[in-house]
Computed example of a mutant assay.
Amino acid sequence: MTKPSKKRVILVAGPARSGKSEWAESLALASGKSVIYVATATKNLDDSEWMERITQHAQRRPASWQTWEVPVDLAATIESAKSSVCLLVDSLGTWVANLLEYDRTQWQEILKELLEIIENCDCDVIFVAEETGWGVVPAYPAGRLFRDRLGSLVREVGAIANPTYLVTAGHVLNLSQLGSPLNNKE
Rank of each mutant, 00 (worst) to 15 (best):
79 E>I: 05
150 L>G: 01
3 K>E: 15
17 R>W: 08
21 S>H: 10
156 E>L: 12
168 T>L: 14
144 R>Y: 10
123 C>M: 00
113 E>K: 13
117 I>F: 01
123 C>D: 01
114 L>V: 02
91 S>H: 03
104 R>D: 14
33 K>E: 06
79 E>S: 13
178 L>G: 07
89 V>F: 03
101 E>H: 11
156 E>A: 13
83 S>P: 11
173 L>K: 01
72 V>K: 09
6 K>P: 00
182 L>C: 09
99 L>S: 09
30 A>S: 15
151 G>V: 00
130 E>Q: 12
32 G>D: 08
68 W>T: 00
54 I>D: 05
174 N>D: 11
66 Q>A: 15
100 L>Q: 10
116 E>G: 02
22 E>N: 15
111 L>K: 13
143 G>P: 05
122 D>M: 04
80 S>H: 09
124 D>P: 03
1 M>L: 11
158 G>Q: 05
22 E>F: 12
183 N>P: 02
65 W>V: 02
14 G>T: 04
31 S>I: 04
6 K>A: 12
79 E>T: 11
81 A>G: 11
35 V>A: 11
119 E>I: 09
2 T>S: 12
185 K>C: 01
126 I>V: 10
130 E>T: 09
180 S>R: 05
10 I>N: 03
125 V>Y: 00
59 Q>Y: 00
172 V>T: 09
100 L>D: 11
139 A>E: 13
19 G>C: 08
112 K>A: 05
29 L>R: 15
2 T>G: 07
179 G>C: 14
61 R>A: 10
67 T>L: 02
52 E>M: 10
26 S>N: 15
148 D>G: 03
104 R>P: 01
174 N>W: 11
175 L>G: 01
153 L>A: 08
39 A>D: 02
113 E>M: 08
111 L>G: 04
134 W>L: 14
151 G>C: 04
4 P>E: 00
111 L>T: 11
70 V>W: 04
38 V>A: 05
155 R>F: 07
14 G>R: 01
132 T>Q: 03
148 D>N: 08
77 T>F: 02
113 E>T: 15
154 V>E: 01
152 S>G: 15
74 L>M: 04
158 G>T: 07
156 E>M: 13
75 A>C: 11
37 Y>A: 06
39 A>C: 04
12 V>Y: 01
83 S>I: 05
42 T>Q: 13
75 A>W: 07
68 W>S: 04
77 T>H: 00
25 E>F: 06
30 A>C: 07
58 A>C: 14
121 C>W: 00
68 W>V: 00
177 Q>W: 04
149 R>V: 03
130 E>M: 06
137 V>E: 09
67 T>E: 06
124 D>R: 03
97 A>K: 15
72 V>N: 06
102 Y>R: 15
59 Q>M: 07
111 L>V: 09
180 S>G: 02
121 C>K: 08
55 T>F: 14
134 W>S: 13
84 S>F: 07
109 E>I: 08
53 R>P: 09
55 T>E: 15
64 S>Y: 09
165 Y>G: 08
128 V>P: 02
72 V>C: 07
103 D>S: 07
135 G>T: 07
155 R>P: 02
35 V>W: 12
74 L>K: 02
130 E>S: 12
4 P>I: 00
63 A>E: 13
68 W>L: 10
27 L>D: 00
165 Y>M: 14
